[in-house]
Amino acid sequence: MAELSLARLTEERKTWRKDHPVGFFARPENNPDGSANLYKWLCGIPGKEGTPWEGGVYPLSIQFSSEYPSKPPRCSLPPNFFHPNVFPNGDICLSIINESGWKPSISVKQIVLGVQELLDTPNTKSPASNAYKIYEKDRVDYNKKVKEQAKRYPPQL
């Protein structure tokens, strides 16, 4: 199983280098010896223009297991990230990365685009944090908190 996952992750890395969305980044973290750890990727997801998320590049961690692509990766934003579909520990509630919605054909590119879409289009049927209550009751306050959060994640130059 590990050979299959490493082969797929190597291919994902090559594909990403050739074709990735503008403003995004995704790269394996380094092992202590300097080699790439294909099982743990650090990604940056830009907020969409014209949304309260604009101006931020949000750090996403993708942790793959040796069972990938049969099993979805664990995707997380920083702990206490303000979003209705992000648990306090940073784990993301998104159908394409949950066991029930996962398909082995889903790529890293599709994951990061899915997370970007979720930022401005929360799934109100699957709340994971108290941000949901603010989103539902006071959209002005919610957008203000999102804009404040965007300042904490400026683009890396």
Rank of each mutant, 00 (worst) to 15 (best):
S66W: 00
L94R: 04
R27P: 08
V86M: 02
S95V: 08
S65E: 09
V86I: 14
K144Q: 14
A128P: 00
Q63H: 10
V108L: 14
G56T: 03
A7L: 12
C93T: 08
L9Q: 03
P79V: 06
D138R: 13
D91G: 13
K125S: 15
G50F: 04
P104G: 10
S5I: 12
V115F: 01
F87Q: 11
P154K: 06
K109R: 15
S65A: 07
S35A: 12
V112S: 08
Q149G: 11
F82I: 11
D141V: 13
W16F: 02
E117N: 10
D138A: 12
Y135K: 01
W102Y: 13
W16E: 02
P78C: 01
Q110N: 12
E148R: 04
S100T: 11
E3P: 05
V108S: 07
L6D: 05
R152I: 05
D91R: 09
Y58D: 06
E148K: 09
Y142W: 09
Q156E: 14
P59A: 10
C93N: 09
A131Y: 00
M1N: 10
C93W: 06
L9K: 04
T51D: 11
A150H: 01
L119Q: 02
P28K: 14
K145G: 01
P73C: 07
Q156C: 10
E67T: 08
G90I: 09
N123C: 12
R139H: 15
G23I: 05
Q63G: 02
I134H: 07
A2D: 09
K71D: 07
N98C: 05
V22R: 03
D120T: 08
N130A: 11
V115A: 06
T10W: 04
Y142P: 02
L157H: 13
L4I: 13
N143D: 15
G50M: 11
S5Y: 04
G47D: 02
S95I: 03
N37A: 12
Y135P: 06
K147H: 10
E117A: 15
I45F: 02
I97Q: 01
S126K: 08
L60R: 02
G34K: 06
L38P: 06
L4V: 10
R152Q: 14
V86P: 04
L157Y: 11
K71S: 12
K48Y: 08
L94N: 00
R74K: 14
D138Q: 10
L9C: 00
L42V: 08
L38A: 14
N85W: 01
P127I: 00
S107W: 10
T124V: 15
T121A: 14
S66F: 01
A26C: 14
P73W: 01
W41V: 08
P46G: 12
V86K: 06
V140W: 02
